[in-house]
């Protein structure tokens, strides 16, 4: 294998497999949003601080602006678009976010939901403190987090 400025990658996103040629320099978030047109994941910073781009990557929560798309060759990725179990139904976290008014502008919400999902997947009975820690990588500028924490708490067992 020799270094290349672009390569063809195969990525499974929300169960669907995509094959695309991508520049090595392209960040995974831009690949997801611009190349795959999955615009649910967002960009809120340029330094990896905000978590708006959070996705679950091979079972682990990551910020997709902190990975190159080419690194995702062969990876399984879950984004907010894949969260609802089926059309017309919401995931328990999605419903709880709505019930608790855990979103206002909704810009942080996709990333926040993925963080919450990763947290509860690993720790279904997360305590409030664990929830705060689990959401620490996601900035929300609208809600002050209190309602988000409540929303996740309501789903935690």
């Amino acid at each position: 294998m020799e270094p290349q400025t672009s390569q063809t990658i195969t990525v499974t996103v929300n169960g669907e497999t995509y094959e695309r040629e991508v520049e090595a320099r392209r960040l995974l978030i831009h690949f997801i949003r611009d190349d795959l047109d999955l615009t649910g994941s967002h960009v809120g910073c340029d330094t990896g601080n905000c978590g708006a781009c959070s996705v679950i990557y091979n079972g682990q929560l990551v910020k997709s602006c902190m990975l190159l798309a080419v690194q995702a060759d062969g990876a399984r990725i879950e984004t907010v678009e894949g969260l609802a179990p089926e059309d017309g139904k919401l995931h328990a976290l999605q419903q709880s976010f709505s019930d608790h008014h855990a979103l206002q502008c909704g810009y942080c919400t996709p990333g926040m939901l993925m963080s919450a999902k990763a947290l509860l997947d690993a720790n279904p009975s997360a305590s409030e403190e664990e929830i705060r820690k689990g959401l620490q990588g996601n900035i929300c500028r609208c809600t002050g987090y209190w309602n988000i924490i409540d929303a996740v708490k309501a789903v935690a067992r």
Binding site: M1, E2, P3, Q4, T5, Q7, E23, A24, R25, R26, L27, L68, V70, Q71, D73
Partner: peptide
């Protein structure tokens, strides 16, 4: 990013 080569 500026153009870069990648290898794993």
């Amino acid at each position: 990013l500026r153009e870069v080569e990648y290898v794993r």
